Amino acid sequence: MPSNADPIRNWFEQGGRAYARFRPEYPPELAAFLASVAPDNRMAVDVGCGNGQLTQLLASHFDAVVGLDPSADQIANAIPGKRITYQCAPAEQLPLSDGSASLITAAQAAHWFNLPSFYQEARRAAAPDGVLALVSYGVLNLESALNERFQRFYWNEIGPYWPAERKLVDTGYATIDFPFEELAAPPFEIRVHWRLSQFLGYLLTWSAVRSAKEAGREELLLGFANDISSAWGDENIQRAIVWPINMRIGRL
């Protein structure tokens, strides 16, 4: 976990349009489950909401949903909704009234937070028996003919360029300090069928890819793109891609 004094780079300050276009969407069943464990359906707050992928799913279950993100670019590309209000704000300074939030979520975002400060704010903003859910999705799996090459790229080639916080995602948040009464969650996964351009577009949203580019290692990226393109075959073929969803859920 980053120390309280260390500033954390916002890797998604720019690129909200690509993030909105290429990031995989959560299954609706995830939002339904999160709503089922909340004490009521008054208000859900999605912290580090990005372009609102989980935010817009929560709107089907709550009277009001607030999406918060420190990046103005992400908010500018957020998915609108009648019950949704978006606002630029960091996780450590939630613009919420005391005791107002029935559910607080952080989807693929908590590893960037100063967690002690965020937890303090979550406790303040949570309604009685409110729920906090830290959601992440792990390393994707491709079809068998492609998966070995991808896993080698992820772990060995691009691996050194991931920020240290990424290790928390790789472990499914299992090592994150989570000082709350934990609730069990059923298994969920993200499953899509993408063309080659969609898959490569998703990789371009990775902080590690941006870091490798800044380090002048574009040949590493091009080498993988060439290999996976050859293995993919016809670029218009839609291939199955699966991400496991991991959660830490607690009663505040």
Rank of each mutant, 00 (worst) to 15 (best):
V139N: 10
Q151K: 02
A133K: 01
A109H: 04
V169W: 00
V131H: 04
L132A: 09
L140W: 05
R124G: 04
L140I: 10
N141D: 13
A110Y: 04
S144L: 15
S144N: 12
L115G: 01
D129G: 13
E148T: 13
V169F: 03
Q108R: 04
N141E: 14
P128L: 13
N147E: 12
V135Q: 05
N156D: 13
K167Y: 12
K167Q: 13
G130H: 06
L134H: 05
L168E: 15
A145M: 08
E148W: 09
N141L: 10
G138P: 03
N156M: 09
Y161C: 01
Q108Y: 07
A127T: 14
A109D: 08
Q108P: 00
P160V: 02
R149D: 15
A110S: 12
V139R: 10
V131Y: 04
R124A: 09
W112Q: 01
P163K: 06
S136D: 10
N114M: 11
A125Y: 13
G159A: 02
F153S: 11
A145V: 10
P160E: 00
P163S: 04
A109F: 00
P116R: 08
N141H: 14
A126P: 10
S117K: 12
L140C: 12
L134R: 07
R124M: 09
Y161K: 01
W112V: 05
L142W: 04
A126D: 09
I158P: 00
Y137F: 12
A109S: 14
A133Y: 00
Y119V: 08
A107W: 01
A110R: 01
E143V: 14
G138S: 06
N114R: 11
P160S: 07
V135G: 00
H111M: 06
A122C: 11
